[in-house]
């Protein structure tokens, strides 16, 4: 791991899973720099946006969505899951490593669940180091 490496995380989240208070509690984490992208529904996570986050310098990307079968728009989180899996394969193919990207299901406002998902990615990043494409 690179010394003094403070990972940059881009967090995509659906506004139904995640309110302002939950967002504030996470953007305050002092072991990473966090940028958030709010979406009306997680189905708006397109593959190109996830890749662009890496192009913009993110070391890791986290997508937070509602629990399966609890999407307000029925299948938004399933679409998000499939797109994240697609981009994880692309990341492996280009040598960035799929572990830089994760999707987590969380009940609305469940800060602990959100923090857990982010911490899992931070653990991966501690091993992987900074984004090698920056």
């Amino acid at each position: 791991m690179t010394e003094n490496f403070k990972p940059k995380i881009t967090l995509f989240h659906c506004i139904n899973a995640f309110d302002e208070a939950a967002e504030l509690s996470l953007t305050d984490m002092d072991n990473c720099e966090m940028q958030t992208v709010k979406m009306a529904c997680s189905s708006m996570v397109k593959d190109v946006f996830l890749l662009k986050a890496f192009e913009a310098g993110a070391d890791g990307v986290v997508v937070l969505v509602c629990p399966e079968s609890q999407c307000r728009y029925v299948e938004g989180n399933i679409r998000a899951k499939k797109r994240v899996a697609w981009v994880q394969n692309l990341l492996d193919e280009i040598g960035l490593d799929r572990r830089r990207l994760a999707l987590g299901n969380m009940a609305a406002g469940d800060k602990a669940a959100a923090a857990q998902i982010i911490n899992d990615v931070l653990k991966n990043l501690a091993e992987l180091g900074p984004n090698p494409a920056v």
């Binding site: 397109k46 890749l51 890496f54 192009e55 494409a133």
Partner: peptide, 18 residues
């Protein structure tokens, strides 16, 4: 258009990494 954007982004990342 979407696939062009995804491929372009993936290739930019891959080339930068290399």
């Amino acid at each position: 258009e979407d696939e062009v954007a995804v491929l372009a982004s993936a290739l930019r990342l891959a080339c930068k990494k290399d």
